[in-house]
């Protein structure tokens, strides 16, 4: 914690050469207050959720289905399996498409062409569009192509659209950080542009691409709004088992449980929150490991 603080304040101090004027000290204090308020809120939230969850953090959470008749035995089995299905389907759709789009834009597209500039501007805008809009878009799409709403594939399409701009932007960033000398060297040795991208640029950019992609998938994993709009189910007692199977996901299940009047549901909601949190930490941890393991400084 202290090191983060020191890192954060160092540039301020360095720039003004140890500026101790009242204004800058006041600003520093304001920053610290803002930081501690945010951290404190997070800690309180985590601790209260964990306390609520404690009696329900057991095997039943992972093996039982949701139960209306006996809420004290309700579990998140269908939601966990549903989340995995949706997230894997999302990854399969979004990752190849996103990386390919980024390679085109970064390595091949002529930035002077109007259509490439238009794509670029739209990408930045799409990354800021609220998640629910992608849900509505997918609902419309599903209706047009005759796909039933509320199936894994529809949910995955919505989430893939949601994270596509993020994957493209982070992948482009990663490609851009590969030095031009690598490409020039490859081309000078007689490789074609395609070979250069495939054998030199892309492998060198993988740590950045993997980090950005995993963080994007984490975001998709935590989304409820677009899936609720798409008719994601809240009560199923079977394992989602295919792209055209109905599904529920952890965030949907948590949202539904938390709104129920029975205390037992609120406890199992807290337990599911902890499970989701664990899953997200695991994914983010994986992103950090990949980055540290394969990162290369040029």
């Amino acid at each position: 914690m202290a090191t983060i603080g020191q890192l954060a304040t160092r540039p301020l101090k360095a720039e003004r050469n140890g500026d101790k004027s009242p204004a800058s000290i006041l600003f520093l204090v304001a920053l610290w207050v803002a930081l501690s308020f945010a951290v404190l809120t997070l800690v309180v939230l985590l601790v209260t959720s964990f306390m609520d969850a404690l009696p329900r953090l057991d095997g039943e959470l992972f093996t039982n289905y949701s139960s209306q008749v006996s809420p004290e035995t309700a579990g998140a089995r269908a939601a966990i399996i549903g989340s995995l299905w949706v997230i894997v389907a999302t990854a399969v759709m979004a990752i190849p498409l996103g990386i390919a789009a980024a390679i085109y834009l970064e390595e091949f597209a002529n930035p002077l062409r109007w259509y490439n500039r238009m794509i670029e501007v739209n990408l930045q805008n799409l990354a800021a569009v609220p998640a629910i809009v992608y849900g509505m878009l997918t609902a419309g799409l599903a209706l047009t192509i005759g796909l039933r709403r509320g199936v894994v594939l529809a949910g995955a399409i919505a989430l893939a659209l949601l994270i596509l701009p993020v994957i493209i932007i982070t992948t482009r960033e990663a490609l851009r950080s590969v030095p031009a000398e690598i490409r020039q060297g490859s081309l000078a040795l007689g490789a074609t542009p395609l070979q250069t991208v495939w054998r030199q640029t892309l492998p060198s950019a993988i740590p950045g691409i993997a980090t950005g992609t995993i963080l994007a998938l984490s975001r998709a994993l935590g989304e409820a709004a677009p899936l609720l709009l798409l008719g994601g189910l809240v009560f199923i007692r079977y394992d989602p088992n295919g792209l055209f199977s109905g599904f529920t996901t952890l965030p949907i299940q948590i949202f539904n449980w938390a709104g129920q009047p029975q205390v037992e549901f609120q406890e199992v909601a807290a337990a599911a929150i902890i499970a989701l949190l664990g899953l997200l930490l695991l994914m983010n941890g994986l992103a950090i490991v990949i980055r540290n393991r394969y990162q290369r400084r040029w």
């Binding site: 399969v92 740590p207 079977y238 394969y294």
Partner: peptide, 25 residues
Amino acid sequence: RSAPAAAVLTLALALSACGGSDDDG
């Protein structure tokens, strides 16, 4: 360097296989 890509892919396949094994319902 392409190992992480392979790792992600393997994970994805493993996960989908997990879901698929519950097919009979």
